[in-house]
């Protein structure tokens, strides 16, 4: 087993697994963060009850992928963990505060009577802030992190960049789009109409911000420009932005017609393409432009130990998570038990 874990291909496999976990996190939690982002825009109290109920049974599982990503990073690419986390100290802490508020709103909102609007705000603002923080981290990653002697060497605010802000707003649009797609699928009546309307705004925001980020990153970061515009790459990579543009157009045109899950699926596709673009820009670094995946990986005996779990348990996890979605298939109704007071 340990012999298997030596050689240059091994970190690649673990990098792929880590990328997979990040993707699942972004797609799954993007869905409920997105519902949170558009939450306050909903016109009626009943819409908000329904929106909340549609994600109640699954949000915890979605957010667990964040923990999975963090611990997998620690176990497989420790350098990424102990350099990047201090580097993004403030946005990470604020993301955590935001997740606290929105997580707790799931529980307390239904219990509250007079001050329910406060929990509405906590839920929506928490979702928004968490998303912005994730965008700041993403932008900071593309810009790069100051490192000396294998440790983070910047100050508390060196994470900040214009690119990060652009990414933050872009993620807000993108998550809102996924969330709206989910609501189109899971709700009906006025709530669904609201979801379709908000999806329009979200598509526009996403498209504009994707364009801005794509234009800004090569300008701000020469390495990214070199990666995309060097000659064979340019031809090889051209399909990524083209396909993205195509999916965005399809999204725009299909919001009012077509099968109900369509908006959600296309929104997920936009995200997957965005992540491909990110991998192209960052490859092959764990810590951007200082630590490569081959240098940042854990010991072979550690990798061997976690490989057992990943191979055997991860598929089981995915299957029962899928099962949980299946149990709550169909249009959402407001629940009578669980967190809330019986209605």
């Amino acid at each position: 087993m340990i012999e298997l874990m030596q050689g240059p291909h091994v970190p690649l496999v673990f990098a792929a697994v880590a990328a997979f976990c990040v993707t699942v996190y972004v797609l799954a939690d993007g869905l409920d963060l997105g519902v949170g982002i558009v939450f306050l825009a909903a016109p009626r109290e009943e819409d908000r009850d329904l929106m909340m109920a549609s994600i109640e049974p699954v949000w915890d599982g979605n957010e667990t992928w964040l923990v999975m990503g963090g611990t997998l990073l620690l176990a497989a690419f420790p350098a990424g963990y102990y350099v990047l986390l201090p580097a993004f100290y403030l946005p990470i802490m604020f993301m955590l505060f935001a997740l606290i508020f929105r997580g707790i709103a799931f529980e307390f909102r239904l219990q509250a009577t007079r001050f329910r609007f406060l929990w509405d705000i906590a839920f929506s603002a928490g979702s928004l802030l968490a998303t912005l923080c994730q965008g700041l981290i993403l932008g900071g990653l593309i810009e790069g992190v100051p490192v000396k002697d294998g440790l983070f060497a910047g100050g508390p605010f060196s994470f900040f960049s214009v690119l990060g802000l652009l990414c933050g707003v872009g993620l807000v649009g993108g998550y809102a789009l996924i969330g709206a797609g989910w609501l189109i699928w899971k709700t009906q009546g006025p709530t669904q109409v609201f979801a379709r309307e908000i999806a329009h705004a979200a598509v526009i925001l996403t498209a504009v911000m994707m364009a801005l980020v794509s234009a800004w990153s090569p300008l701000a970061v020469p390495e990214v420009a070199a990666r995309w515009f060097a000659l064979p790459n340019l031809a090889l990579l051209a399909p990524v932005p083209l396909l993205t543009a195509f999916v965005l157009v399809a999204l725009w045109r299909g919001i009012w017609e077509g099968p109900e899950p369509r908006t959600l699926l296309l929104a997920l596709a936009v995200f997957a393409l965005g992540l491909v673009g990110l991998v192209v820009s960052l490859w092959p670094y764990v810590v951007p432009r200082t630590v490569k995946v081959w240098d940042g990986a854990a010991d072979p005996q550690t990798l061997a130990f976690i490989a057992v779990g990943l191979v055997i348990i991860l598929p089981v996890v995915l299957s029962y998570q899928a099962h949980a979605y299946w149990v709550f298939r169909g249009k959402t109704t407001v629940h009578a038990s669980g967190y809330g007071a019986p209605h």
């Binding site: 699954v58 999975m68 130990f305 991860l314 998570q321 967190y339």
Partner: peptide
């Protein structure tokens, strides 16, 4: 690192995967 990862993999996912069914 692996112990924390196994905690997420065997414990948190198990809880999160079934707590929705348990509560709702």
């Amino acid at each position: 690192g692996p112990m924390f990862m196994y905690e997420a993999l065997t414990a948190f996912f198990l809880e999160a995967g079934f707590v929705g069914i348990m509560l709702f």
